[in-house]
C-alpha cells in the first residue's frame, strides 16, 4: 500500500467551502505530525486549487469539487479535481501572472503558489474534461508536538 491513510471529500464548488476544504485537509494531515510551516503550505496550496475550481471551472455556477488526500510515511499526496470546462493550455496557465480574467483583479499566481509551496505539481484533464491537480508535499522531519512543547 502506497498510503497509510486516505481522505475523500466531495462538495459544491462555492467560495464559502474554501475555508472548510483547506482546514479539513490540514486537520487530516496532522496525524503525520507535520511542522506548522508544512501545514500552512498545504492549506495555501489547497486553497489555491479550490479557488481555481470555484472561479473558473463552472461558468454556470454549479458543480462539484473532489479532493483526495493520501498520507504516506513522510509525504502527503493531494488530488483536487472538478468536472468543469478545463483549461485549454495547461503550460500557459502555469506561467506566473497569467490570468484569463484580467478585469477581475486576479493575480494569476495560483499555480505558481501551489508549485512553490508544494514539492510537486502535476496538471491534467480527467475523462470529463475537467481539471485534475495533483500535488505532493514532502514533510519536514520535525515534530509538531515537540515544537509546541518547546515553546511552552
Amino acid at each position: 500500500m502506497k498510503y497509510l491513510n486516505h481522505l475523500h471529500l466531495k462538495f459544491d464548488a462555492l467560495s464559502i467551502n474554501e475555508g472548510f476544504a483547506r482546514s479539513a485537509v490540514a486537520a487530516f494531515c496532522v496525524g503525520l505530525s507535520p511542522t506548522l510551516d508544512d501545514i500552512t503550505d498545504i492549506k495555501t496550496a489547497v486553497s489555491e486549487a479550490v479557488t481555481n475550481c470555484v472561479v473558473h471551472a463552472y461558468p454556470n455556477g454549479f458543480g462539484k469539487i473532489e479532493i483526495f488526500v493520501g498520507l504516506g510515511k513522510d509525504f502527503v499526496d493531494i488530488e483536487i479535481k472538478d468536472n468543469g470546462v478545463g483549461i485549454e493550455d495547461l503550460e500557459q496557465a502555469r506561467q506566473p501572472f497569467f490570468t484569463t480574467k484580467p478585469t477581475e483583479e486576479r493575480a494569476g499566481m495560483g499555480f505558481t503558489v501551489m508549485e512553490s509551496f508544494m514539492n510537486d505539481l502535476k496538471l491534467s484533464h480527467n475523462q470529463s474534461g475537467g481539471l485534475k491537480v495533483f500535488m505532493t508535499k514532502k514533510l519536514q522531519p520535525k515534530n509538531l508536538m515537540a515544537s509546541k512543547t518547546q515553546n511552552g
Partner: peptide, 13 residues
C-alpha cells in the same frame, strides 16, 4: 491569519 493569491489580486487593485 490566512491569505492566498486571491489576496494579491485584492491588494494590487
Amino acid at each position: 491569519s490566512f491569505m492566498d493569491s486571491t489576496g494579491i489580486g485584492v491588494l494590487i487593485g
